[in-house]
């Protein structure tokens, strides 16, 4: 499977990846120049945490080999695709219990603004592209790699 690899030492905290994610998942048409950054309609699936020492840590879904979020999902909304290895989320099925938010050991997940859906990386399958965040990173702190999963 493909995974978005992370080299946190290269991360400058520019947050272009967050913007690209927001743009890829926005509900309205338009370009990045008219993306409403403050609207909670356009929430990012990934995030960058800045540490006190001035360094950064990219927090991105790992599409884990043994995904705890899937193990905790009571509606069948979260599933690991056996072919692609991606951990995908079906909002229509979701029962909004947020057990998955509690069970992702890496604190990747969160409820959306309406508290009815989970914000989860879909590898840009909904946008029909390669992961947008990867293309947006100017430092190659995140990059795609084929891994055995």
């Amino acid at each position: 499977m493909k995974r978005i690899m992370i080299d946190e030492t290269k991360c400058d905290g520019c947050r272009n990846c967050e913007l690209a994610c927001m743009q890829a998942h926005r509900s309205t048409p338009g370009s990045i120049y008219d993306l409403d950054l403050t609207s909670r309609e356009n929430e990012s699936r990934n995030h960058i945490v800045s540490l006190q020492d001035g360094s950064y840590r990219p927090i991105f879904c790992r599409h884990c080999d043994q995904p705890e979020c899937v193990m905790s999902c009571m509606s069948g909304a979260l599933k690991k695709d056996p072919d692609t290895g991606l951990v995908l989320y079906d909002g229509e099925k979701c029962g909004s219990c947020f057990m998955c938010v509690m069970n992702c050991p890496y604190g990747v997940l969160r409820p959306d603004r309406t508290r009815t859906r989970v914000l989860k990386c879909d590898f840009c399958t909904s946008a029909g592209t390669e992961p947008s965040c990867v293309g947006a990173c100017p430092r190659q702190a995140i990059y795609l790699e084929e891994v055995i999963g």
Partner: peptide, 17 residues
């Protein structure tokens, strides 16, 4: 506190503490 405080990555790109 967040995972960033315990951030580590295995060779296959999965997170670990």
């Amino acid at each position: 506190v967040s995972f960033a405080d315990y951030f580590d990555i295995g060779p296959d790109g999965q997170y670990c503490y």
